[in-house]
Nucleic acid binder design. Structure first.
Lengths: 236, 236
DNA sequence: GCGCAATTCAAACTGCTGTTTGAAATGGCT
DNA sequence: AGCCATTTCAAACAGCAGTTTGAATTGCGC
């Protein structure tokens, strides 16, 4: 492989291909996207994909990984907040950064659309994405939520509340086709995203303040309450 | 047209086709689903789709409409509650019926998967579905939320809070691929769905009790003492 | 310049897709 | 039975997909 001899153009067409593929996959989905269109936009020959990536699917997985990585680096979940910041502020940063990441429309807007398609039809690439990108963020949020719940934090309650927070963020993106038809007046510019982040944060904080462990219907003794105080603590 | 002379078999293959198409479209998506496979499962000839529906897309729109309609009839949003029931109970019924509808795995499990795919790649059929099925339910929820908010209800706040409620429900279904990988221990049987409905309802009720119109201002820290007993609870 | 490996290219290949077609079969009606 | 519209059928059609191929081109070390 060209290591340093050609750092200027290690493989120009390869990168161009990756970029064009991101666009096309996001627009059309993996199946409907055609290698011909990708190569056309990249200004490359039809055989370029197979030469540089092996086949269409390998190209796709590389595109997905790259898009997620780039999005997380552009909008880190902490938004620059120090780990010692108050939990409320960290929750707000988490929500806002998530929204910004999802609604980003720069040259890498691919990330959002690609993930929606991945929800509808998961590919092998999703496993790696969950492991490398999503699980760490899930852990971060769980830490914030556990701190906000304090002594009430049980693993189940932390998980349920974390999902309740994330769901509100993702929903606006996942269901945009429906939201756009239901409320055509909604626009997702930066101002509205800030307002949205404020609403979601407030809504969630109010809920978290009063949240109690749901006594799981069938086995309901209160013996569990005292056994859980050890979970809320954080790593440090 | 055979009106009553053949009420036993008005068009048997047509209905069989519709059923098989629901399966295949849900499994593979509109694009990847093949007319051949649909006809094979229906035990019909390859030309049957074009003869009875015109083309593949017309078949799809009919499948989608039918699936949504059937799901809403099977689990009506009120779950049999009278319109005069307390708002809290109506919210709970709305959430539970939504979850049941979405996680239904009967012979018409199509509905859920079809909608997820529709989110990733909306078709013309979505307009009709939003108009006929989704908008009415959205209105119902808005009524419940407005009643719970009482005097604080502004159109914007009602909308934002309604979406926060719906988002929690849909999330578990839309993001199942990720949730299943993050928390493999979660199962979505009837017991867990009940528990999930309880959590979402409680989480939302706590949030609604303290929700205020977002005036792009900072949260007021301690203006939340005893606002909970005022409006939320009433009996008819 | 020369040689050699890496890359690009145009063209063809294989396979599957939705759709059409024209004949064959069906089934109620008089 | 005999007619007729409706429906079914096997086969073929037209087109596009991803991939392969083998020659042409490039770019670098010598």
């Amino acid at each position: 492989m060209a290591d340093q001899t050609q750092s200027e153009t290690p493989d120009r067409t390869r990168r161009t291909l990756l970029l064009a593929a991101g666009e096309v996959f996001a627009e059309c989905g993996f199946r409907a996207a055609t290698v011909r269109e990708i190569c056309r936009r990249a200004g490359a020959n039809i055989a370029a994909v197979n030469y540089h990536f092996g086949d269409k699917e390998a190209l796709y997985t590389e595109v997905l990984q790259h898009a997620l990585q780039a999005a997380r680096e552009k909008y880190p979940p902490s938004l620059g907040l120090p780990p010692g910041a108050p939990a409320k502020a960290r929750l707000r940063a988490f929500v806002l950064s998530f929204l910004l990441r999802i609604f980003d429309e720069g040259p890498h807007a691919h990330h959002g659309k690609l993930m929606v398609r991945e929800m509808a039809e998961p590919t092998l690439a999703l496993d790696a994405v969950v492991r490398d990108q999503i699980r760490p963020m899930s852990g971060q949020l769980a830490g914030i939520v556990a701190e906000l719940l304090g002594a009430r934090a049980t693993p189940e309650l932390v998980r349920a509340c974390s999902l309740s927070v994330v769901s509100q963020v993702m929903f606006y993106h996942l269901c945009r086709p429906v939201i756009g038809r239901l409320f055509p007046e909604m626009k997702f510019d930066r101002a509205q995203i800030d307002q949205l982040a404020a609403h979601i944060t407030e809504f969630s904080l109010h809920a978290l303040r009063n949240a109690k462990a749901t006594s799981s219907a069938k086995p309901s003794p209160r013996a569990r309450l005292k056994a859980k105080s050890s979970i809320a603590n954080r790593k440090s």
